[in-house]
């Protein structure tokens, strides 16, 4: 009776840590079968073992989301293993805190490649693979794809691209009656290795200032837990969201409402 993903086969990128890992646990609890993928093979395999210990049907697929060839191979092996694919979560991403004057073109491009180009590659592969039976694509953008942050120009641009790309893909799939829904997810700040890692690259004073500024601007007064964001992914993949496409699911403790 409840919202669930029973027997749906879902591929998640960047699944080894943070939001991706939490999504795997939540999806397993909701009945999904998991194609766990990440560039970090050790962490990905370890997660798969933990999921299997919970009774989940989970398999690991090594995947660097920036590599076009790897996408094709990954889709083929996932479908060969599970016999079908019902959902793809384009979650892998990076964040580098760096103001526009200090950002290098190389750094800018790296952020766009992982956060934006790879979402195109993943979405294209997902549409090609799922168009016969339909499915659901969840593209993990961010509140930083909706509003700006002075220290995140490259990240802002990459996540804004995901938001607009998602709407185009949603309309394309609807026009062609593929039965594929495409939505973007916009988490606020989440306590994950992505945030702690980005802060670790700053001086202690700068890191504290950044963190203090961020938490002070969240009406709920705290960052999210990855488990909370994971439930939005479950909802968008489930049939409970079957009339949702081209939409933005904002999960931000009120950050963009202010």
């Amino acid at each position: 009776m409840s919202i669930h993903c029973k027997d749906k086969v879902v591929l998640i990128t960047g699944a080894a840590k943070g939001i991706g890992a939490a999504a795997c646990h939540a999806l397993a609890a909701a009945g999904a079968k998991l194609a766990v993928s990440d560039i970090d093979q050790d962490a990905g395999r370890e997660l798969c073992e933990a999921l299997r210990a919970e009774g989940a049907d989970a398999e690991f697929f090594p995947l660097d989301v920036c590599d076009e060839q790897q996408w094709q191979h990954c889709m083929e092996t996932v479908v060969a293993s599970f016999g079908q694919l019902d959902g793809v979560v384009n979650n892998a991403g990076i964040a580098v805190i760096c103001g526009p004057e200090d950002e290098s073109l190389e750094g800018w491009r790296r952020t766009q490649t992982i956060n934006s180009d790879a979402v195109f590659l993943g979405s294209r592969a997902a549409i090609q693979t799922m168009k016969a039976r339909g499915g659901s694509i969840v593209n993990v953008s961010s509140i930083e794809g909706i509003v700006g942050d002075p220290m995140l120009p490259a990240y802002n641009a990459s996540k804004g691209a995901v938001r607009a790309l998602t709407k185009s893909l949603a309309l394309y799939c609807a026009d062609r009656d593929y039965g594929i829904r495409v939505n973007s997810l916009h988490p606020g700040y989440v306590e994950t290795p992505l945030v702690s890692g980005a802060l670790a690259k700053l001086s202690e004073d700068d890191a504290n200032a950044f963190a203090t500024r961020v938490v002070a601007s969240i009406p709920m007064g705290r960052m999210a837990r990855a488990e909370e964001i994971a439930q939005g992914i479950v909802f968008l993949l489930s049939d409970a969201a079957s009339y949702m496409t081209g939409s933005e699911l904002v999960m931000d403790g009120g950050y963009t409402a202010r």
Binding site: M220, E228, Q231, G232, M251, A257
Partner: peptide, 9 residues
């Protein structure tokens, strides 16, 4: 499941 969602559309 939406514990972190407020002020959203």
């Amino acid at each position: 499941a939406s514990a972190y969602i407020s002020g959203a559309e």
